[in-house]
Amino acid sequence: MGAAAIGIARQRNLFGVVLLGGIYSFLMATLLVVLDAVDVAMTEAAVGAGISTVLLLGAIYLTGSTESGPIHKPWLPLFVVIVTGGMLVYGTLGLPAFSDPQAPIHQHVAPRYLTEAPVKTGVPNVVTAVLASYRGYDTLGETTVVFTAGIGVIALLRRRKPRVRRDDTDRRAGQ
């Protein structure tokens, strides 16, 4: 997966970049299954590898698919990125180790959801129970965000040219 990511950074042909992005998304979905996040993996495979790829391909079709070579040397961005990465590594030193049952994340509200959610909501899938029942208003807000984004896309791309309009319907179907 790291190889796919670095390939995306180095590749100049945008078509190749988008295809590598799709591969990367599927690898990420596999990793999420391994980490027991089956709902997230399904969404990532459908949205990340499916819809995002289609949207990017549509945009490349409209804007051209080659990237011009770099004008600046990449040393300053590289320096910034390495400093950021170093600070993040320093930050993780204080975090609990992987799969530690005593970590705060497993002690706080999660046990309550796991024991009470099936009884209170009648849904065996706890992720669904929390998403649709406990945090229903969050999901309402999320749909508002998606709706606003859809309106924005339509407002930006509403043109006379039929070519642009096709891309527009693409996007609305995607959401």
Binding site: A37, E44, V127, V130, L131, R135, E142, V145, Q175
Partner: peptide, 15 residues
């Protein structure tokens, strides 16, 4: 299950 819920929302907002 809690991070899964949060990230489901994040994926949809991301697209």
């Amino acid at each position: 299950p809690l991070p899964h819920v949060l990230i489901l929302t994040a994926i949809v907002v991301g697209v």
